[in-house]
Nucleic acid binder design. Structure first.
Lengths: 220, 220
DNA sequence: CCAGATTTGTTCGTATGTATC
DNA sequence: CGATACATACGAACAAATCTG
């Protein structure tokens, strides 16, 4: 058949990305019902079976919800698990903390050595660095420093750096994230953290080192 | 068609369970290559498409690995992620701890109130309770108390309680586990833990409350 | 409450592509 | 190169859940 492929990438993956991009672009908003399988398949010129595979994939990645007899819906990113999916810190009484986050800075840079090791990058690869402060009841308790491989966000590289949009887009892409690895240790805080948290010199802090993998990479 | 179903459960799930049982029973051992799709489909009297869906499911549940052009293989439970999948505690230098575990006790009982809440059980449901001590370099640092809904292990209920086998079977079933939720808090230890860890009265401990869901339940 | 339309869920079968041996 | 096995893609039919009139 005429498989108008691009670099031999499987059709169902291309379709998945196209659908995900519509969500990320806001074309389909959270809570919306999207067209049915048959119409979607026609629109992209694929068979219903291929479209179903793409939709199933997106559901397994928590971007969509499919309900028999009702339709396919865009999951609300803010609801339940997604926004707090990787923010699971609780007080002794069970209340969740860490909901309040404020972005301090976003920058592009070459990956440093620890970043290369954890993100499996090589020498000159570029990364986005996002630093945020997390607070609970207006009291800062954690400094968050995230590094993302720039290669994962091809759209951004092309069109510059739309600063504040990055976080939203990262969240959209974030839904495609898979398992996370965490390491908790005790040690000395970084100078930045020590200052932001207003700590006395020599104070030890809990260090949470978290590596989140994309759904694809986590399979191996 | 003649869908010899049992209680209307989807065919591909029945097939998945049948395949998983062969692995759990040791019929197919870790590292083994299992028969090809077509033969398996014939053996169970389903279409190749259905068999493929079952195999894909089992791969997504990390029970099998499928390699194009080679075959389908049983994953080694002891390798890499599986045994330590839910034991991710590290020292500051990055070495993993918690590898040494000793089972103290296994018992059957009615679910108590906290168990009902976390495991979403009702009144008289039964649970298995397993308590273990975890040590690092022969030094005990954690008491582990696990509760499992007895309903998830139908084989065991029928044939009594093969005590030491339970852990192995739980591990086999454990491969079908999905996401985990964790809550870390600070508080007073239980009397049992305080004694086992040889703590002075009033000492505070870190409490890790982890709920692991089956792959199916974690979808919702 | 029922009947019909809509939509996803499940199953089937076939054909072709591609990696491995 | 050929044989084998999995990966991808297509298309169709029926079941089951849901909503509407």
């Amino acid at each position: 058949m005429r498989q108008e492929r691009f670099f031999n990438r499987p059709l169902y993956l291309q379709v998945r990305d196209a659908l995900a991009e519509r969500v990320a672009a806001g074309h389909w908003k959270p809570g919306d019902a999207i067209p049915n399988e048959i119409d979607l398949a026609r629109e992209w010129g694929v068979s219903s079976g291929t479209m179903r595979k793409s939709l199933d994939l997106l559901e397994s990645e928590h971007l969509l919800t499919r309900l028999q007899g009702r339709g396919t819906f865009v999951k609300d990113p803010g609801s339940q698990d997604l926004m707090l999916r990787f923010s699971n810190i609780y007080l002794a009484d069970g209340t969740r903390i860490g909901g309040e986050a404020r972005t301090l800075d976003i920058a592009v840079a070459e990956a440093c050595e620890p970043e290369c090791a954890r993100l499996r990058l090589i020498g000159g690869d570029q990364v986005y660095r996002i630093s945020r402060v997390r607070s609970h009841r207006s009291k800062v308790f954690m400094i968050e420093q995230a590094s993302l491989p720039a290669a994962l966000f091809p759209l951004l590289v092309e069109q510059g750096l739309p600063s504040h949009r990055l976080v939203a887009i990262a969240q959209a892409y974030g839904m495609l994230l898979g398992k996370a690895e965490e390491r908790i240790s005790v040690g000395a805080p970084s100078p930045l953290a020590a200052e932001a948290l207003n700590l006395a010199q020599g104070t030890q802090v809990l260090i949470l080192d978290r590596v989140v993998r994309t759904a694809e990479a986590s399979a191996c």
